[in-house]
Design a protein around this nucleic acid. Structure first.
Lengths: 125, 125
DNA sequence: GTTAGTGCAAATCGTTTGCAATGTT
DNA sequence: AACATTGCAAACGATTTGCACTAAC
């Protein structure tokens, strides 16, 4: 992997952001200081970094994919009202993973799991 | 809800198909006998039927949404190699659901869960 | 007759890609 | 010099939408 300024900026934007940014977020965030940056470059780098295990790509139902700099095994909660994506760790999934494999031969990647639901904040409204 | 021939055909296509059909599948399947049918109508009806709890809409990571006529609580396994979507029932999720709610206030809809992974057939190759 | 539902084509959204120019090694 | 990476704009696939027409009630 060859160095590039853009890649460094893009990776750091994901790593330093408590939120789970989308490509569009990264693009607009960096655009302020880097007017020449292109959206294609952001997509290319986010995907490239995810393929090289420097980021995780999170599929969001009915929404843009977003990216996560936390590489340790964990899952996500996606609020269907406000779209917020938060981290959660559910160790019990290991057992479920194993029993599904034994029953069906299907090997789950539990760390790709996104639970849909309604977050506490949205429920209060 | 007013009756329409198209709606009836579309609903039946999902109900009578062991696979979890996408809008495009339903469209092409019905097109043979109903040349006038439009893709917009298929989308409109599938979404409408899902909103009215006559079908379930399943978000497939990196793929087209698909639909499921089985309304009882269950989850899905999505193979990232071949794209196959299969049904599975994981009763243990009730406990996980409850403990996440107690910890975070987030209420999960477990029946929207799609586990990504590799199915038995694809692994053999 | 009113209005929900349709077909069609255009529009939208998120994302990817081809290509010539540029940057890194 | 070789080739990875970029910016740009065009292309893409899935889905939605506006509108005039048709069908259900």
């Amino acid at each position: 992997m060859r160095y590039s300024k853009q890649r460094e900026l893009i990776l750091n934007t994901v790593l330093n952001n408590r939120v789970h940014p989308t490509a569009d977020f990264v693009y607009n965030f960096l655009r302020e200081d880097n007017p020449g940056l292109s959206l294609g470059t952001v997509y290319r780098n986010l995907n490239f970094l995810a393929e090289n295990n420097m980021l995780k790509k999170i599929s969001v139902p009915n929404g843009s994919d977003c990216f996560d700099g936390t590489l340790t095994d964990h899952q996500h909660l996606v609020c269907v009202k406000c779209g917020e994506v938060s981290d959660i760790c559910i160790p019990e999934l290991i057992n479920i993973e194993k029993s599904i494999f034994d029953k069906t031969g299907f090997s789950i990647n539990t760390s790709s799991l996104a639970f849909e639901g309604i977050c506490g904040k949205c429920k209060k409204k």
